[in-house]
Design a protein around this nucleic acid. Structure first.
Length: 230
DNA sequence: GCGACAG
DNA sequence: ATCTTGTCGC
């Protein structure tokens, strides 16, 4: 396990940039008709020297995929907890810009404000593109919570001290919960509902699930149902 | 000093 | 994130 050199110039610059992006984050609902929702994710190739960013846009309320894009770039930043965006956001943003459509909302694989400096990858991407964004992570980064009840839709608040920074949501009965927090132009109150509106029978919301498949497995039918290929 | 630590 | 089949539990 490599030690994280917090004195590294790039790390210091990244943290400084997060402080600036953080000031631009807006946590009120700022969107009209949510019709196109994008899911983004990243995978790696060539021994981890290439990042592969995928974005899939689905249409509400049927969640049918209507657009997608795939971008490959050299990896330029190591994985550092709290600085994930500096490793993945550049490629993801490039992929979103390749779309022929402009999504009304972006669901990211990672956190929004549930972050040490309240600037997770969902905030980062949302602010830079000035588009509504939500973070939907599979694991906790920071915050305290109690295990939510086992039914689909059950949730419990995620706190950092006295601050409510997100929710731990059971998107599927008995499955491990996901961590939802607003990234930009979405409120803490509405974030969970927007994610649930994009979730069917799987743990992850459709946009994210499809983007994940596109980013990892080379082939990947863009059909919302059909069990995972494997 | 000892853990914790998105993907 | 990634290396990887069958198997156990809901």
């Amino acid at each position: 396990m490599p030690t994280i050199d917090t004195s590294d110039e790039r790390v210091a610059a990244a943290i400084a940039e997060q402080q600036e992006l953080r000031a631009r984050v807006r946590l009120h609902d700022d969107y009209s008709e949510l019709q196109l929702v994008a899911g983004v994710d990243a995978g790696f190739e060539a021994d981890g020297t290439l990042i592969r960013a995928a974005v899939v846009v689905v249409r509400l309320p049927d969640l049918a995929p209507v657009d997608y894009a795939l971008v490959r770039q050299p990896v330029t930043f190591p994985y550092v907890p709290g600085l994930l965006a500096f490793r993945e956001a550049p490629a993801i943003i490039a992929a979103i810009r390749q779309l022929r459509t402009t999504p009304d909302l972006i669901i990211c694989d990672g956190h929004g404000i549930a972050h040490p400096r309240r600037c997770g990858i969902a905030c980062h991407i949302g602010v830079l593109l000035d588009l509504p964004a939500i973070g939907c992570a599979k694991q906790r980064l920071i915050g305290r919570f109690t295990e939510p009840l086992p039914e689909r839709g059950d949730r419990s608040p995620l706190y950092d001290g006295d601050d409510l920074i997100g929710w731990v949501v059971r998107t599927r009965a008995t499955a491990r919960p996901v961590f939802i927090s607003p990234g930009h132009r979405v409120s803490l109150e509405r974030a969970p509902d927007l994610v649930m509106a994009c979730t069917t029978r799987f743990r992850l919301p459709e946009p994210t699930r499809l983007a994940h498949r596109l980013a990892s497995h080379d082939d990947a039918p863009l059909t919302s149902d059909s069990p995972p290929l494997l």
